[in-house]
Amino acid sequence: MTRESAERIPTLWHGTGLARERVVSLTAGRETLVIADSAVTVPLLDDYCARMIAVDALAVDVTTVTDIAREIVRRPPRVIVAVGGGSILDASKIAALALAPGRVFDYAVGHASRSALTFLPDSAPPLEIVAVPTTLGTSSETNSVSILKNEIGYRLIVGRSLRPRHAIIDPSNLITLSHAAVREGAMEAFLRLAGASTSSRRSARANGDAVALGRALLETAARDSVSPAGRLRLARLSAATQRTAALRGGDPYSARHWYLANEVAFLLEVRKMVATAAVIAAIWRRICSGDARWGDRESLEDFWTRIAGGVALPLHPPAGIAALIDRWGIPCPRQPSAHDTGRISAATERAWGNHRPMLPGLVAQDFCDVLRDSCWSPQPVGNACRPSTFASEEVN
């Protein structure tokens, strides 16, 4: 791989029925390893001959990633084809570091066991990854970020060496998603834009791109989240959040809702967007009351008012986002006990808050206050953790 190609953002391929043709073309004549979600049916896997690792996406954790890394080292591929949602793509990106010089994989896993945020040494990806997403919203197929679940939480790993070389968006791989899953994916992409837009340290171009993409996401999700064309558009818009100026700015940690939602998701064992639905309005209320530790009031209000009118939502950001979550039927988690609230708050301060740049000046009591002001459901929501599974096989 040349330095020029390593510096490029992933090449994005998109279209109905495109995945198999592109995968065959991009891997022709090269040792290929397919890492795929064992629960999904993807047409390109039906008769594509390659070595495969099937992974239970609901059980991906550091042990799973380490097992995949060992398989990669045992028989190094030239190309990895990662097929699945964000957890599968993230696991593949991290495991591929096993072929990077300087024991980068060991560093990433070891540092993540001690710290919530790990920055990797700046280097090119160790091999080509072809990312084929089967869900919407995470943008893992186009970014340089991965989430690693270990015994203490969901840990964030960042570095150019995690960047896929190709991303293939084929609506044929999205057609089995439930309507609710599509809406959650669109919400994840939208809040990525909104979170970045809570910072005052952004250019007019960044704000303009964020508003244009945010409006398009909401309008498309409202108009057509069922057809292949609608789902393809939503997936492309999600990818575009990483490929435009929309997320650029002087504050890389401006999406501050993410950090608290991350700890809620881990400790309550719910999906990330379910956790986000609980806390986002409470956080935005603090921003709009002038608490600059959570974000800039003027910036958030500017972003929201430029979008909300076109989709008939309240112009006050906290009321508007709560109305959107309700309109789209995104569930909230069960009400945490006082003990769980304390655990989540302490974990958030320890991982992201106080003197750290992600949530500077915010401590456990601040997070307790937000959680008490959050939206909860009386009924349990989300997936319980399951034991990890790992299988390696030849597909003939």
Rank of each mutant, 00 (worst) to 15 (best):
Ala82Arg: 04
Asp67Trp: 03
Ala69Cys: 07
Tyr48Glu: 04
Thr41Ala: 11
Ala54Met: 14
Asp47Glu: 14
Leu44Pro: 07
Asp61Asn: 15
Arg70Trp: 06
Ala59Trp: 11
Arg51Cys: 07
Val65Gln: 02
Gly84Asn: 04
Ala39Lys: 14
Ala54Cys: 15
Arg51Asn: 12
Ala54Trp: 14
Thr64Gly: 05
Val79Leu: 00
Val40Gln: 10
Thr41Met: 12
Ala39Cys: 12
Val81Pro: 01
Ala50Asp: 14
Val42Glu: 10
Arg78Val: 01
Asp56Phe: 08
Gly84Lys: 01
Arg51Pro: 14
Ala54Leu: 15
Ser87His: 10
Ala59Gln: 07
Ile72Trp: 06
Thr64Lys: 03
Ala82Ile: 02
Ser87Lys: 15
Arg70Cys: 02
Asp46Glu: 15
Asp61Gln: 05
Thr63Asn: 13
Val65Ile: 15
Met52Glu: 14
Ala39Asn: 15
Leu44Trp: 13
Pro77Cys: 00
Val40His: 08
Ala82His: 03
Val65Leu: 06
Asp61Leu: 10
Thr63Ser: 11
Pro77Lys: 00
Ile72Gly: 07
Val65Glu: 04
Asp46Lys: 14
Arg75His: 02
Cys49Met: 11
Thr63Tyr: 08
Val42Leu: 09
Thr66Lys: 05
Arg78Thr: 11
Val55Arg: 05
Arg78Leu: 00
Pro76Cys: 00
Ile72Arg: 03
Asp46Pro: 02
Gly84Pro: 01
Gly85Cys: 04
Ala59Pro: 10
Val79Ile: 12
Gly84Met: 01
Ala82Trp: 07
Ala39Val: 14
Asp67Gln: 05
Thr66Pro: 00
Ile72Asp: 07
Asp56Thr: 10
Ala57Tyr: 11
Ala59His: 09
Asp56Tyr: 07
Arg70Leu: 03
Val81Tyr: 01
Pro43Ala: 00
Gly86Cys: 06
Leu44Val: 03
Ile53Asp: 12
Asp61Phe: 13
Val60Trp: 04
Arg78Gln: 00
Gly85Glu: 06
Thr63Pro: 08
Ile68Leu: 01
Asp47Lys: 07
Ala82Asp: 06
Leu58Ser: 09
Pro43Ile: 01
Gly86His: 07
Thr41Gln: 13
Leu44His: 11
Val83Gln: 06
Ile80Tyr: 03
Cys49Val: 12
Ala57Lys: 11
Val60Gly: 08
Gly84Leu: 05
Val55Cys: 12
Val40Lys: 08
